[in-house]
Amino acid sequence: MAALVSGPAGADALPLDKVLLTVKLIPGGRGAPRVLHLDLATLQALPHRRFTTTTIWTRGPQRFEGVLLRDLMLALGARPGAMLLAHATNAYSARIPLSSATDPGPIVAYLRNGKPMTLRENGPLWLVFPYDADRRWQTEVVYSRSIWQLDQITIAPGPAPD
């Protein structure tokens, strides 16, 4: 993990077409933002989670597999109280407080029904919540945060981290 976030150099080394997720880490204080590029292998290296749920956008139960958003963010150096700004390929974006990334909770899915997702299939990354597991994940706010075709997350320090 330390290697994962060691610096832009490592990330820059990745071929661009392999990059699935770009994470922009804005530190608190005056430090310059850091940009991290994550590919499928990196994501798969992290502890993965799997759940089956229905969504309002698909037909029938879907099995999603990915990394817990919380784990990912913490691994990338997000501080508690941070605010995430998630972007989709079609320039959709949503603000997600890190505190709402619970365990169990949203995952950054890279497999749907055991297969990688194409762009047409709302992939390659889909921020999904276990909607069926809890009614609190069936609200509009949660739906608005369920970003498919996720390609970038900006991590900003929260207004009052502590």
């Binding site: 309002i56 037909r59 390929t89 047409r120 075709q149």
Partner: peptide
Amino acid sequence: NLFYSRLRTVQTS
């Protein structure tokens, strides 16, 4: 692809 994914949702959901 983006359009397709949108349409797909409307067609299947």
